[in-house]
Amino acid sequence: MHRSVLRGFYLIATIVLWGKFAAKGQTTENVANLFIELTQNCSCVYYYQCDTNGYIIIDGNGLIDERAGEDEGKKPIFCEGGKYQGEFICCKHPNQTITENSTTGTPTTDNAVTVPVITTEKPKERKCGRSLAIFNERIFTGEDDLPAVPGEFPWLVILYENKSSVWKYRCVGSLIHPRVVLTAHHYVFRYASEPFRLKALANGDAERGQITGNAFLERDVIEIVKNPDYYSGGLYNDIAPVILKEPFDIYNKQYPINTVCLSANMAIENKRCIVAGWGKTEQNTESPILRKVEVPIVENKKCEEMLRKTRLGDDFNLHESFICAGGEAGRDTCHGDGGSPLLCSNDNYNTMIQVGVTSWGIDCGQKDVPAAYADVRHSYNWLITELNKRNISITATVN
C-alpha cells in the first residue's frame, strides 16, 4: 500500500476513534494509546513489565528479584502517559506458557499418585512439630512482635556456604527428618555439583548461631535434590530437600532439636499461621535474634488480584505451586528469611505443620501485598518419592 494512502487510513482511524471515545470522557492519551494497541496488536504497559522479546511478563520473571534488562537490538513502541518519557511501551501478550529446559510442570496434588510412606521406627521421645521451649509460647492473637524463645522452633536449620574458607550465612531451612533439611530451591540448586560447600547448623536457640565445629549442632551436606519442575524465572516449585551426611540427634536432651510435621492435604483456608527467621526487620537491619510473625493465609485467586496491583502488573499469573500469606502492614517475611518454614497449627494448637517455604515477595511488609510461599502440599508426593529412593522415610508425617 502506498505510504500516502496508509497515512490517510491512520488519519481516518484516529478521527473515528476520537469521535467514538471523546464523548465518553476519554483523554487524548487514552485515545492515542488505544490507537497504538489496535494498530500494533499489543497492550500499553509499564516498560519493565515487557520482556526483551517484546512480550508481557505474566510469571514475574525479572520482576520478583530484579527488573528485566533492555534489549538493545529492538526498539520499543512508546505509549503516551506516565511521569516521564518512555514509561509506557506497547507489548504483546505471550501466546504460550513459558517453560525452562522443556519442563512440563508439576501435576496438581489431586492428580498425583499417592506414594506410601514406609515407617521403619516409631519416634522414641519427641513427636514432630512439638515445641521444646521451657514454656510453650504459641501466639495466635496477633500480639507476636516478640523474639522467639529458645526451643520454640527446634526444627529451624541455618545453611552456611563456604566462601574463601569463611562460612557465610546462606538461608534458612527446616528439619523434616534427622537427615533432611527442606528449603527454597533457588538458594541451593547452584551447589548441586558441590554440596560440600554447604553446612547445616541446627539452631533451636533464639540467637542466630555460627559455624564453630560443634559436633552436636553441625552436619555436612552430601546431596541437594534438584526439583525437575523448578523454573527460575518465576520461582515455580521452589522447594528442595538437602540431604545431610549424618543425622541430627533429635533425642539429645542437651540441645533443642526436633523435626517439623508435613501434610499432604492440610486445609489452611482462613487460618493464621506463623513464620520465623533471622531476616531484616522493619528498620531494614538484620536480626541476630530469631523473630516470629503471624500472618493470614490469602486465597490464591485473591492473592493474584492483589499482586497484580503491584509492579507485577495486570497480566501476572500466580502459579499453582504457591500459597500466599500476609498482606498486613509491617507483618511479613523479608530479605534473609528465604527458606524459612510457614507453619500452621493443628486443631489442638499443640503441633506445628509446615505448609510452605518462604520464596519471594514484593518489597517487605506492605499492606495488601502478600508474600509467596512454595506450597509443600503441591510437592509432597515428589518429595516423599525422592526420599524413599534414598531409603529415607518420614516416620511422623501428618496426613
Rank of each mutant, 00 (worst) to 15 (best):
I12G: 01
A13V: 08
T14R: 07
F21T: 03
A22L: 11
N30E: 15
N41I: 10
S43N: 13
S43Y: 14
Y46E: 15
C50A: 11
I57W: 07
I57S: 06
L63H: 09
I64Y: 07
R67T: 10
D71G: 02
E72C: 01
K74H: 06
C79P: 02
G82N: 03
G82P: 02
I89K: 05
I89T: 14
C90D: 15
H93L: 15
H93K: 15
P94L: 14
N95K: 14
Q96R: 12
I98L: 15
T99R: 12
E100I: 13
T106F: 10
T106I: 12
T108Q: 09
D110N: 12
A112L: 13
T114F: 07
V115R: 10
I118M: 06
K122Q: 10
P123A: 08
E125R: 11
K127W: 06
R130A: 11
L132W: 07
N136I: 03
N136M: 01
I139T: 01
F140C: 00
T141H: 04
L146Y: 05
E152G: 05
P154V: 08
W155P: 01
I158E: 04
L159Q: 05
W167K: 14
R170W: 00
V180W: 04
T183I: 13
H185E: 13
Y187W: 03
Y187Q: 14
A192N: 08
P195V: 05
N203W: 03
G204C: 12
R208C: 06
Q210A: 15
I211L: 10
T212H: 04
L217R: 15
D220T: 09
V221N: 10
D229N: 10
Y231G: 01
I239W: 03
A240M: 01
I243D: 09
K245C: 02
P247C: 11
F248Y: 14
N252H: 15
Q254S: 13
P256I: 13
I257Q: 10
I257A: 07
N258W: 03
V260T: 01
A267F: 08
E269I: 11
I274M: 14
A276E: 11
Q283F: 09
V293Q: 04
K301N: 12
E304G: 12
E305I: 05
M306A: 12
L307V: 07
L312F: 00
D315H: 07
N317H: 02
C324K: 04
G338C: 13
G339V: 08
C344S: 04
D347Y: 04
Y349C: 00
V355C: 11
S359T: 12
G365T: 10
A374L: 04
D375M: 05
R377F: 00
S379E: 08
I384V: 08
I392T: 01
I394Y: 00
T395D: 14
V398N: 13
